[in-house]
Simulated scan of single mutants.
Amino acid sequence: MNRFSIPPQLQGFFAQLGNHEQHPWKPLPWKGIYNKVLFSDPVSGATMELAKVEKGATFPEHFHNSVQTLFLYKGRLRTKTGEVYLPGTFNVIPSGQKHGPFFC
């Protein structure tokens, strides 16, 4: 397994370091939507995650209490305004900003 040790300065943080392929996808409450949280700061709530979506899936408008980062690994997302996110898209969403709904 090619996992890295968590540096002492980051003890208490959630981190899945190394090759992300070694970490499992977690299903979200919406059918066909999965994520991998790679890093999360329990104090600020800041999170870095990967997302994978299946064709035909949707998830509702929502917001987060902290900054959210998103890297779309697989699938396509279309916003209500018609903007399309393709695999490889990276986005940072400010704390409290509503986003979605997304159609896959």
Rank of each mutant, 00 (worst) to 15 (best):
P101E: 06
P94Y: 03
A46M: 09
P60E: 08
G12L: 09
G88P: 07
A15T: 04
V53W: 09
P7Q: 06
L77S: 02
Y73P: 01
L10P: 04
S44Q: 07
R3A: 11
L38F: 11
Q16R: 11
G32M: 05
P87K: 08
K36L: 11
P7R: 10
P87Q: 03
N19Y: 08
K36A: 07
L70D: 03
Q11M: 12
G18Y: 07
H99M: 08
G45S: 01
F103W: 14
T89D: 11
T69I: 10
F103S: 03
Q16A: 11
F102T: 00
V37R: 05
G12C: 04
S95C: 10
K80V: 11
F39M: 13
A15N: 01
N2C: 07
P8K: 15
K98G: 01
F63P: 01
S44M: 02
G18C: 06
K74T: 04
F14G: 07
V84E: 11
R76W: 14
F103I: 06
E21W: 13
P60V: 02
K36W: 13
P42S: 04
F103R: 08
L28G: 02
R3K: 15
Y85W: 15
E54L: 10
V43C: 02
T89N: 14
Q97R: 05
M48D: 03
K55I: 02
N65L: 06
R3S: 09
P42K: 09
R78E: 12
A46G: 11
P27T: 10
S44A: 04
N91S: 13
G32F: 08
F14K: 04
A57H: 10
H23E: 11
G32Q: 08
Q97G: 06
E83W: 08
P94C: 01
Y73S: 12
H23Q: 04
F102D: 00
E54W: 04
L38A: 06
Q68Y: 00
E61V: 06
C104P: 12
G100S: 06
G45F: 02
K74C: 06
G100F: 09
K26N: 07
Q11E: 14
V92Y: 01
F71E: 03
G45N: 01
P27V: 07
R76G: 02
P94D: 00
Q11W: 13
F63Y: 15
G18N: 05
T69R: 04
L38D: 00
W25E: 02
V67Y: 00
W25Q: 00
